[in-house]
Design a protein around this nucleic acid. Sequence first.
DNA 1: CGAAGACTTGAAAATCATCAAAACGAGTGG
DNA 2: CCACTCGTTTTGATGATTTTCAAGTCTTCG
Lengths: 249, 249
Amino acid sequence: MQERVTSTVTPLADPQSPLFAGFNAEDRALFRAAAISQKSIGARMDLVREGDIPKGLYLIAEGWAVRYRQRSDGSRQILAILRPGDLCIDPPGRPLNHAIGSLTCVRYGVIPYPNFEDPPAGSSDLPAALWRRQLEVSSVQLEWIANSGRSAYERIAHFLCETYSRAKACGLVRDNQCEFPLTQHDIACVTGLTSVHVNRILQQLRREGLIELHGKRLVLLEPERLGQAAIFDSAYLRTSAQRAPAWTI
Amino acid sequence: MQERVTSTVTPLADPQSPLFAGFNAEDRALFRAAAISQKSIGARMDLVREGDIPKGLYLIAEGWAVRYRQRSDGSRQILAILRPGDLCIDPPGRPLNHAIGSLTCVRYGVIPYPNFEDPPAGSSDLPAALWRRQLEVSSVQLEWIANSGRSAYERIAHFLCETYSRAKACGLVRDNQCEFPLTQHDIACVTGLTSVHVNRILQQLRREGLIELHGKRLVLLEPERLGQAAIFDSAYLRTSAQRAPAWTI
DNA sequence: CGAAGACTTGAAAATCATCAAAACGAGTGG
DNA sequence: CCACTCGTTTTGATGATTTTCAAGTCTTCG
């Protein structure tokens, strides 16, 4: 059952090393081994509330979740979209300054903060997988920061491209369509705009024949042209390889 | 050739573990051991250009540097401020989709992508230190994303608070003053605003008796009140402990 | 069917960008 | 020391973008 594992630690050095080879079946096995608990939660609930101390690493297995911050004036800011395979790694022992919440029903697992001195028997790639994931997360965060200086039109178009592209990487796109359970108000929370303005920009995108968006589905009628409008280059999403549509943990 | 060294991996589990204890003298020694090259570069130069494949991890030892993206229309967006002790960790083997540049003269080192199978002799905390730093970086990035939904006034005030607070953590604040070599145009690139608008907001902050800003120095006349205006909570910067004003590598 | 949420619309106001020019300041060379 | 330059800061006027407020319509779902 266990093959020979040369090392409990993982090389970062080589771009070809397992650390940067993509999130594969092997990784999934790792996460399965690591998950202490597996949970489900309904739509629009909190997995972790602001001020809570995270119990470990949160691995989203299915559904849509977000990191978000609630402002004192009642407005929200979404800080990250969490899809299957996404991992929330936060400093242990410190209260989170934002919340992790679900948009749809979410299945997820909690992985205890790993102690690399005692690797789970027979596996060794956890630290590598964690690094890969964290660099991916960072890469997306930088992209979101870059968007903060752009127009509403570009921000929204970029966000649609990113969401579509991430779904595509999981094999969740068919006929240029993907699931899209966010309301216009949610898009506003992502982009830092008002829902009224989001509505108007979406109408513009529709008028231009670039998208369809209704019934929790997004259609990119002309992905190429939308990408150009958004100045979207998907390379930042490709720090690791293909993913699976859902994760068994 | 390789013996099994249990401690080449590092425990993440315990909040008290060295991984989360702060960036200390020991870490500095580690980085010194790890740095293959030590360089200096003049103000307003690129350490890494867009499209370059990073040669390793970049450790800023002294000065002010930034990650920035150059847009096709000529405008810039600054994605991160890099101060002494800050580390740029990017996926190896992939061209960077932005640049790393200096604002002032910068002293820095390049750390080869570590191969955890062959840890530097006699030391073992590198992976721990890297994790700590990366989580710190991520934490700041989330804060910047949260700022994208706020007003120009709040964004600018928040940025000043962050810069001041980070300088303070390094012992670089005296008499409520710290170094501040950014031009108003640079602040605009950070906040995604125009320099004209930045200028007007800065004047407002001055009129309100909150700041002084000239001659590459920033004075917070009333740090408390500015923090409230910016809705600034420094907790997100405190994922590790005190730092040194400059790093010997 | 009724109710709640989501989407849409219009008008007015605030915020922020753009353009253009002037004032200021630090450095440089005469 | 002055004159000159160059980059930075400041100012004013104008226009575009985005928000706010308020009301309406459309969906969905029990």
